[in-house]
Computed example of a mutant assay.
Amino acid sequence: MNQLEAMKEKIKVIRMLRVLKKSYTYEELSKITGLPITVLNRYVRGKVLPSVERARELTEKLSPYLNLEDEVRRRLKYDSFGFFDTMSVLSDTNLLALIAEEVALRYMKTGVGKVLTAATDGIPLAVQIANELGIDVVYAKKKKEVGVDKFYEINYVPSASGSITTLYLPAWALKKGERVLIVDDVIRSGETQKALIELCKQADATPVGMFFLISVGDIVDKLKEEYNIPVDALVRL
């Protein structure tokens, strides 16, 4: 194991503790881990890192208490009309990093060279996944950036609005033949994600998969069948 791999193991368990601390008290975590509260507090605050051996022990002890799908479901906030807010998920960088690590493991050997998303809510997760894969993240916007000469662009009609929406992606963002992972926070009808696929086609880039934090309905299965690539969601509603 090299130094980078060792550091990743240490940081991962710190992230696990920070996520769990939002649901468990230090007293409860102490019983789970067998460590004094003072030690756990120093880990959570980043004052000290555990050794590799202790990090592995803690990961084994904490894993049964941290299910990422359940954690996301628990944090969703619903209004009286049944709409949900994802802010408490997207704002937690430790939770997103743990999710991103799992996603990156699935695509590490696919030769993916870019992560593509649509601004704005998909950006936090896309950045974390790209970081884990060690590649760049690019995102399509609904407005043209000043200072960019050439764009790929696609018009589509989101079913929720009934009006034409245009996505713009700088032409330099994707290269011909580049393998692309499409990421977003929530997928409902799939129109935006199909638009991202079309942007890849314009750039002669190749989508190798899609990942979503949350999917509504059976759209994930439909996209998988239509494009014949891996399409996954952590939470299905």
Rank of each mutant, 00 (worst) to 15 (best):
V48P: 02
V48D: 10
V48S: 15
V48E: 15
L49W: 00
L49P: 10
L49T: 11
L49Y: 14
L49N: 03
P50L: 03
P50F: 04
P50V: 04
P50M: 11
P50S: 08
S51W: 06
S51F: 01
S51A: 07
V52W: 04
V52I: 15
V52D: 11
E53T: 13
E53R: 14
R54L: 15
R54E: 15
R56Y: 10
R56V: 02
R56L: 15
E57A: 09
E57I: 06
E57M: 10
E57F: 02
E57G: 10
L58E: 02
L58I: 08
L58Q: 09
T59P: 02
T59I: 12
E60G: 05
E60C: 02
E60F: 06
E60K: 14
K61M: 07
P64R: 05
P64L: 08
P64S: 07
P64K: 01
Y65W: 07
Y65A: 06
Y65R: 07
Y65M: 07
Y65T: 10
L66T: 03
L66K: 03
L66Q: 01
N67H: 06
N67M: 04
N67Q: 12
N67P: 08
L68F: 02
L68C: 01
L68N: 07
L68P: 11
E69D: 13
E69F: 02
E69A: 12
E69K: 15
D70S: 13
D70P: 08
D70N: 14
D70C: 01
E71K: 03
V72N: 04
V72K: 13
V72Q: 06
R73H: 00
R73Y: 08
R73I: 13
R73A: 07
R74D: 12
R74N: 12
L76Q: 09
L76T: 09
L76E: 11
K77P: 00
Y78H: 08
Y78E: 07
D79S: 10
S80A: 14
S80C: 07
S80Y: 12
S80W: 14
S80T: 13
F81N: 14
F81M: 14
F81G: 02
G82V: 09
G82P: 12
F83S: 03
F83P: 03
F83C: 01
F83M: 12
F84N: 00
F84S: 05
F84L: 12
F84K: 05
F84E: 09
D85T: 01
D85G: 01
T86F: 06
T86E: 14
T86P: 14
M87L: 11
S88C: 01
V89F: 10
V89A: 10
L90N: 04
L90D: 07
S91D: 11
D92V: 08
T93C: 05
T93I: 07
N94F: 04
N94E: 13
N94H: 13
L95W: 00
L95D: 05
L95Q: 13
L96Q: 04
L96N: 06
L96D: 01
A97N: 12
A97C: 05
L98P: 08
L98Q: 04
L98R: 04
I99N: 05
I99T: 09
A100D: 12
A100W: 00
E101I: 08
E102C: 00
E102L: 06
V103P: 09
V103M: 11
V103I: 15
A104H: 01
A104Y: 03
A104P: 09
A104V: 10
L105D: 13
L105M: 09
L105C: 09
L105W: 10
R106H: 12
R106A: 11
Y107L: 05
Y107R: 06
Y107H: 14
